[in-house]
Write a protein that binds this DNA or RNA. Structure first.
Lengths: 206, 206
DNA sequence: TGGCAATACAAGTAATTACTCATATTATTA
DNA sequence: TAATAATATGAGTAATTACTTGTATTGCCA
């Protein structure tokens, strides 16, 4: 069962040179994924690009899946941290103020490396994803949203908080993701973030 | 270049028995994809499930990609037709009436075979997708939406029609898709479709 | 009924690729 | 400085799988 195969590093780097090796491997993974897309990416190519032998790669990553998982982890952690700091800043700001700021932040995140973001979220087969880890980050963001919505509950129209969380989360994510990839011209001015903010605010606020 | 490889059937079935073969192959493709997911699907398995030799399969489908493309084509055609008939019925109904009907229809479509829908839209590598064909169906739906929005233009708040089309399309698709897969309990009553309709109506209508 | 075209068959091939292992090199420590 | 641990190497292996090809069977038509 591939789902049983561990994804944890086989060996933790202890000396400086191996930490450099691991870094190079992850950088190469991101680079090859971005350049070639998932299905033209293979471990030999990654090792080559990293300037490292294939054997070294398998010393630190037990299988191909673990490379992807490590990269995703890095990536989602960055996103979660940025959103956390935004929510902390905006916790006491009403939706009319907070929503546009959050939408702006999400668009900015997606615009950093759209192609890598696309590959990680669209092209990686489900079987290559570590369910627990993904859900952890997702739950973290859900929790931030939940706290914020409860804080402003009496200003909000929808009453089913869990459903509202899902709707907001899903809508913002998919709109920002697709816009960056399919309509980059939308992103150039602030019109798009205003529209998305309008969509959410007019739904949320009484 | 895999993108150059034709995807058109190598041979068109002429007798009844071969038409049955082709049907069985497509049914088997859908079945295996649904059961095993994309990356555990292979052509030998499809042929076996279809009760047909691997040679017969390659007589009608020049490569694996063409199987997926044929299946997607069938699938998107069904969706486009259903939406077209809905839009025709509702062309002269105001958004407050039309939107809930359309949302309901989209949810219903996604609920028919959620797993197949998920595999086709999430798991199939981008390289296995025929770009032209996908965009044709997508453009067809865009066109229906455009005509409707123009018809009711003076009742609408957003002025940038192209951006509005994108926002509506993307929002409805992703909400219905994700809800069916991640929150089937939302679908059981009509609360979810009401909420999604509210989201859109409060944004669209002055 | 015989000949031809359409269809069906499945063993086999060739290419890809994740991953191993025996060995060599470099750093650390006692 | 010698011994040991950590790290690096890359040729080779084994498994998978898309696809070919030569042959057999079935249906159609004159």
């Amino acid at each position: 069962m591939s789902s049983k195969r561990s994804v944890k590093p086989r060996k933790l780097p202890q000396q400086e040179r191996s930490r450099i090796t691991v870094e190079a491997i992850l950088e190469a993974t991101a680079h090859i994924l971005t350049e070639k897309g998932y299905d033209k990416t293979n471990t030999n190519l990654i090792a080559q690009r990293a300037g490292v032998s294939i054997g070294s790669l398998y010393q630190y990553f037990p299988n191909k899946k673990s490379l992807i998982v490590a990269l995703r982890e890095q990536h989602s952690q960055e996103i979660a941290e940025l959103l956390e700091s935004k929510f902390n800043h905006l916790f006491n700001s009403p939706p009319e103020i907070a929503i546009p700021e959050l939408v702006k932040a999400v668009i900015a995140i997606h615009a950093i490396n759209p192609r890598l973001h696309q590959v990680l979220s669209e092209e990686i087969p489900r079987s290559e994803r570590s369910q627990q880890q993904m859900q952890k980050t997702d739950e973290q963001i859900t929790e931030l949203l939940r706290a914020y919505l409860l804080r402003w509950r009496d200003r909000l129209r929808p009453q089913n908080i869990e459903m509202t969380i899902f709707i907001i989360n899903c809508t913002v994510e998919s709109l920002c993701h697709s816009a960056v990839i399919e309509h980059p011209q939308f992103i150039r001015d602030s019109k798009f973030e205003q529209e998305v903010s309008n969509l959410l605010i007019s739904y949320l606020v009484r």
